[in-house]
Nucleic acid binder design. Structure first.
Lengths: 238, 238
DNA sequence: GCAATATCTGCGGGTTCCCGCAAGACTTGA
DNA sequence: TCAAGTCTTGCGGGAACCCGCAGATATTGC
């Protein structure tokens, strides 16, 4: 039973290595990769079935790496180990988990005990383990804001990419007006109309404001936009 | 000679602690703080003059913490220790360094030797030490893109906040048309007109597209937007 | 089956954005 | 000092955005 660790930070990597060996004394080799790309390659060549994956990495982030790994071998067990519980990451992971796959999501701020427990649960017991804080985000409702539906989230991503209403309508096979309707819902939910300062109307361009708000609420983040950009190029570049 | 370490990741914190003790055997206490807010408080109460500061933190990021510390005691020596060399961070730091202050900027990916050297240079020799990779960004020109002027960067931030042209004109004491001129420059430099896919015209809303491009080029990042948002509220909320 | 609710769609118009054109204001250098 | 360049400002217009209104079309619950 080999384990692959994909993590770009050297300190965290050695820490993980030790934690894995301690939590899974019965395990065989522990392989390390320092970015998503190398992680994919390692997973392919060494055929590991157990992966600990960081999310935020330079060459290729954890979500993309996990997607290709799962595409090749959907029964791979992956434990995500991330700094943040951004809604964008949580959604990103949820979006790529294959039917019936086992995975876990633990925050780096968690205790070493929790990490070891998660390692055993996911890799040995084939149980899904989602950190409580992360779970809270998954089941919508984030802080005081009501949480977006999938439709709203998708249009948010398209707007954040910089697409026009017309382009979105085309991509989503909707009429122009429907796109604008969804946008209005989005503006409502994100609270884009709330103004800092009092007599300020017309201060905001709602579409860019929505992106700004989504970013600071962590509903979106840069890597989610980059992922969407790649998808866009793929579907447009045919 | 005491040293304050402000860093939210526990592993990195202990690593830094050891590195500081090893590099500066003559130093006294080594104090730790786990976020920017506590860092500010510690700097105030324990009156340290040497700080090692992470940039990306939850409660208050390193740039803001450094700003308040320097505001209170401009002769404090600060070594920034960051994961990334995003243009947004580099600009953010450069923007708050007081006249004549000594500081350093080292990447976490640097070797332990480089870190220790930087610690001695900044804290003992009062020399500014900027990582080579970071320096490359500071002196404009980023990859293939030409690098933005301050005027262009500022308008980019305002746009990313979601402000309308009119609002920006007011804030910056410019005419509407001038704002739009600067925007056009910005669009030009960011290469916003380049289209993925061939026959695609009118696919992009230039203003949101500019934000998307800036984010993926790391010219902007979420924390820069949040900082700008706070500044906005302050100046608008009077 | 039949309301009740939600979503999609078209129309119309007020606002904002994007930008070409051109005239003034400012810096820079020989 | 004058010329060349850069930055600012106004005007005008086509396109895109934001959105109220209202009818058409699902979807849901009873």
């Amino acid at each position: 039973m080999d384990v692959l660790i994909v993590e770009d930070d050297a300190l965290h990597r050695t820490f993980l290595n030790e934690a894995v060996r301690a939590a899974l004394p019965e395990c065989g080799q522990v392989i390390e990769a320092e970015n998503g790309l190398k992680g994919e390659a390692q997973a392919r060549t060494s055929r590991v079935e157990h992966v600990v994956m960081d999310l935020q990495m330079n060459e290729r982030n954890g979500i993309e790496a996990a997607r290709t790994i799962w595409r090749e071998r959907p029964d791979t067990k992956i434990l995500f180990w991330s700094n943040y519980s951004d809604e964008a990451y949580v959604r990103g992971v949820a979006r790529i988990v294959p039917e019936g796959a086992t995975y876990g999501y633990v925050l780096k701020s968690a205790s070493e005990e929790r990490l070891k427990l998660a390692l055993r649960s996911v890799f040995i017991e084939s149980q899904c383990v989602i950190d409580r804080e992360v779970r809270g985000i998954q089941q919508k409702s984030f802080g005081n804001s009501p949480g977006l539906t999938d439709a709203e989230y998708e249009i948010l991503v398209d707007v954040a990419l910089g697409l026009t209403d017309k382009a979105i309508a085309q991509r989503k096979h909707l009429s122009l007006r429907s796109v604008q309707n969804r946008l209005q819902q989005l503006y409502e939910k994100l609270g884009v109309y709330e103004t800092p300062g009092q007599g300020s109307e017309g201060w905001f361009n709602l579409r860019t404001r929505a992106v700004a708000v989504a970013l600071s609420r962590k509903v979106l983040n840069a890597s989610a936009i980059e992922r969407a950009e790649r998808d866009l190029r793929q579907s447009a570049g045919i």
